[in-house]
Amino acid sequence: MFKAAYPFASKFKYIAQTLAKVTDMIPFTVRPEGMEVKMLSPDKTTMIILRLPNLAFDSYECDSEKTFIVRADELTKIVRRGTRNDILEFLLDEERRRLVLVFRDKRTGVSRRFYLQLREGVVEKLGEPKIALPVKIRMLTEDFKNMLKDAKIVSDEIDMKAYSDRLEAIAEGHQKNYKNIMRIDKPLISYEASAEATATYGLDLLEVSLKAMQACETVYIEFGENFPMKLTFDIPGGGVLIYWVAPRAKT
């Protein structure tokens, strides 16, 4: 059996919306130690990993590993109904092949129940890119979001250039350019570049993570010379959302 109560229904809304931007189906794996979603977009440009340990839940019961798939649009439509006062309960009804989602209002105790049919399919065992990334940055999600929005005004891609003392975000468009030089405390929370590196990423791919940013205060960014970018969001209350983005190669 699998039954769990997540204390922040409104935060889960943003997480589910981020997951829904990558594929049409969301494959869940639940184990006694926690919940995991791992998905690779069909065009293999992005990968998303959600890990919520059992401690992130108010209550968590899972006797053995189970996998199930739900339609992303159906899940997001339901979780969008969650408010700040709601706890989101998950109950896997294996017999009827459905996931029961219950919003329980913390103040009034009123509950609203949704039944979501499970979809057929096998949850694929996916690996993760195996690379050491020399550039490691922590910044406020708000600053990261602004950087993407600024760059978007001039281009559809962003060049990330890491030097020993600074990070440069550059976008070049037709008759317009954007350059943002960032250093420790201005506005980076932490910065480490064991090697200089430059890589280019599509802004549309990075923007997918914007929803996740609404659930988290900081983002941990890692990248390397023409390597994928790894964005790690620490979810308040426990758990992480990892988002991998493949780089662009200029021909």
Partner: peptide, 20 residues
């Protein structure tokens, strides 16, 4: 022109190149 610039001139790589 935009699509050419984004999808042909610039090659979007896939993550699978880094899986192994």
């Amino acid at each position: 022109k935009k699509a050419y610039r984004e999808n042909i001139k610039v090659k979007q790589m896939g993550l699978d190149a880094w899986f192994s």
